[in-house]
Every structure is written in structure tokens, then in C-alpha cells.
Design a binder for these strands. Sequence first.
DNA 1: GGTAGACCTGGACGC
DNA 2: GCGTCCAGGTCTACC
Length: 328
Amino acid sequence: MRTLRLKAPSDYALARDYCSYGYFLLAPNRWIVPTKETPGFVRRHFAIDRVVFEVEVTQPAIGGDIVVRSSRSLSAKSRACVERWLRRMLRLDETAAELAAFHKLDPRWKKSGRGRLMRSPTFFEDIIKTITSCNVTWPGTVQMNLRLCEVIGGGAFPDASSLVKARAQTLRARCRVGYRDLRIVELARMFRSRTIDPEWFEDPSTPDAAIREALLELPGVGPYAAANILQLLGRYSHLPLDTESVRHGTTVLGMTGTSKEIMHKVGAHFAPFGAQAFRSYWFELWEFYEAKHGKSWTWERDSTGKLFTASQLKAAAKRAPAGLASSP
DNA sequence: GGTAGACCTGGACGC
DNA sequence: GCGTCCAGGTCTACC
């Protein structure tokens, strides 16, 4: 079978809900922007048993089924894999009722329906993507993911087994991951040996604090990365505070002080949103980006998607009046 | 507990 | 076109 259909929540809108987090711009993900003739759709490669194939993901009508077309015929087992990956990536299991709870706490996003945050098909890919986003500007993250897919994954995102086998030197020289090489190999080894158990991290009954503590034990994962991985796991109480938080605090929220002080203030500013703090914070940032570059579903990976450099954002901030987003 | 410096890459800038 | 500076989060050593 080459086509499968996935049930989506009644309010699901592919363009809005997929183009909701920066990872949608990272390989092997590709968003094909809508034109007058065709609606936008997702294209990416997957690999099963080292066979790489391409899928195209569309949604003919808002709230309607997600339609997946594969470049190769899929067995029942492969179909189940692809369905599980896409349900995770698109957050298809997050219901309209769950989003309503978020909108009740922060009504600013009720009208647009914003709330779902795109993520990777697997926990492993989310962790590696987060590692590639640390201590590097956005175009560097874009490059690293592109090269990891091209050099190691044959077009798809490399799985733990491929990365365990990869030489650190190859990751550094050809994938340009720099000093992250050994950390990436070590993380892959931990996944393969089940030292990292994805089910435990994905289990809703595991407490946030236990997950955060376990994440901070991982190589290359500090407070920022841990908070980011927590949100990718659907746990929104922690903010991944970074230089972007400082820019947002100063230019949009009108805060003053040292970087450390502003990070603290930003954290305190969103604390009233409690378990939804990250989503309130994130959609403010996203609103700022969209004010500068247009709606996210019009962004091209190779043009707009590379504009998020520190200097570009600083320049954009100068053009933006403080108070773009309303306060909580 | 807090802080300084190293880690590596690529963009920005000056010449 | 080349050289230099700087941004970015984590980790380690040191006070």
C-alpha cells in the first residue's frame, strides 16, 4: 500500500500546526509552501531497515484526515511505523479539548487556534536536533541537520544504530557538528544500549522533575536543552531560556538589566501560566517572527528559514516596537 | 555556589 | 579574497 489516511483532531490545520516550531525547517523535514494551485504539504524521507523512502503529507480540508503518500509500497509493519512517527511529529493525539484548556489559560491564541507544536517523529531525533541547536547560530543548526541526513542517513534522519557506527571524525569534518561529535555518538550509544529508555521519557506518568533530572545527566544537555526537550515531550512548565529569551525580554517586553537578570525576569513573567508557560512564551516569539517574515507556512527552508541569525533578529527588533505581544 | 575560559563553526565586517 | 571578531549553550577547573 502506498497511501494511508490518519484521523486528525477536529480543529487540526496542517499549515498552522506543522509550521509551529523551528524544527519544521530542519532536514529531513521539508515544508512545500502553498501556491495558487496547490495547498502546502510536508515532504520528508524515512528509513526502515535501511531502505530510504519519501512520504508526502497533505490535509485536503481543515479538520479532515491527513493523507500520506509513500514513494514505496509499505508492509503492514512499515505502515504502523510511519503512522506512529507521523502521529508524534504532527501531534495528532493532542485533542481540541486539550487545546481548549491552554486557550482558557491564555486566550490570546484562541482566535488563531495556535497551540500544537511540531516535533520530530522520534524522541531520539528530537534530542539530537536539540544538541545541534546549542551554542550555534540557526544557519549552523540547519547545516548540521542537512549534512547528518545526507552523509549518515542517506536522505533520512540517521537512527541511533547508524550514528553509533559513524566515526566522530566524520561527524566533525563532513557534518560540521564540531565538538558535538563525541556527544552525539555517546547519545546514540545510550539509546542503542537502552541506557536511555524512550518509553520512560514519553510515559505521561513519569514526573516532570524526574525527566528533567535524567536529561541533565545526558552529555551535551544543560538547562536550556533540558527545558527544550521537556516541551518536545509535551511538558510545558519550563522555559528554555537562551539569548532569544533575552532579545524578547528587552525588545518586546521592555525589560532591562544584565542577560542573567533578564532571563530571570522572563521566567518570572511567564510563571503565571504554570504548566502552559512554554506555549505562552513560544507563541509570543513566533508572533514576532511572523511579524517580520510573514506567516510561517510561507517560509522556505533555504531562504526565509536561514534568516534567523542573531544580527538579523537584532535588526528586526530595532524595527519592532516594544509591546508587540500583550502581557499575561 | 558562582565564575572564567575553552569548545567549534560560520556569519559579519574591515581592509 | 583574506583575516579577524563574535555569537551561541555546555562543561570543567578553579576560587
